[in-house]
Design a protein around this nucleic acid. Structure first.
Length: 220
DNA sequence: GCCCAGGGGGCTC
DNA sequence: GAGCCCCATGGG
């Protein structure tokens, strides 16, 4: 089975999801992308709300706020010591390199942009791609834990497959378009969050059950 | 109480 | 370069 078939099945099942990421300012998407690492979105939302209430919306305010205060505000998202330090470092980088203006960074082509993001501590492949897809709004597919689980359960890839190889496999045959990439990622998240779950997959409710042996294996 | 979440970095061999 | 371990809160 190919990605485009999965896409069509999910699109018919869930309907249009659009961009799942709340439409915020580009820098807030970057903050969210860091905070959501290995964390739930509901916990991230609390942190984002705290930052908003304190008027912390740009790299400049992140840089100015005392580290301990920043930790306190983002505590709910977990790993707050690391994340606070990384937000500080990234903000400092954006200020010194681009005077805090993300437009300048996002003007670069995708490949350069991705390379530059990956050089920053705290931004790995998934976070970099999330920033490109949802903040810079360029067509760069995001692979996440849900995606990996779904594709490996479908028997399309080995569960040990690395990020870049899985990404290559997934985007094969899909139009390289912003809205398609956002939509497909959103659909996979919905499936992974609600049905193709880690410990209790609801295989009987899965729109892909006819294409997937995973549920059958589990039953015997 | 236990398991887990939309990762990433650092260390080891 | 793969394989571990650490980071830490909050929800089910």
């Amino acid at each position: 089975m190919k990605s485009i078939e999965i896409y069509n099945i999910l699109r018919n099942y869930f309907g249009a999801v659009g961009s799942w990421w709340p439409k915020e300012r580009p820098f807030e998407v970057i903050i969210g992308a860091i905070l959501t690492q290995q964390s739930t979105w509901t916990n991230v939302e609390k942190a984002l709300k705290n930052l908003n209430q304190q008027g912390i919306l740009t790299p400049f305010e992140i840089e100015e706020i005392p580290l301990e205060k920043l930790k306190e505000l983002i505590k709910s998202s977990g790993f707050f010591n690391q994340k606070a330090n990384r937000l500080k470092e990234i903000s400092e980088y954006l200020i010194t390199q681009y005077n805090g203006n993300l437009e300048l960074l996002f003007n670069k082509n995708k490949k350069e942009l991705r390379k530059e993001l990956l050089n920053l501590k705290g931004i790995g492949p998934e976070t970099a791609d999330s920033i490109i897809l949802y903040s810079a709004e360029k067509a760069e597919f995001v692979v996440d834990a849900y995606t990996k689980r779904i594709y490996s359960r479908l028997g399309l890839v080995n569960e040990k497959i690395d990020y870049e190889n899985l990404k290559e496999f997934i985007i094969e045959g899909i139009p390289e378009e912003l809205t398609i990439y956002q939509e497909y990622h959103g659909l996979l998240v919905l499936l992974g969050k609600n049905i193709c779950k880690k410990n209790n997959p609801k295989c009987m409710e899965c729109p892909l059950k006819d294409k997937c042996d995973f549920g059958k294996k589990e039953n015997g």
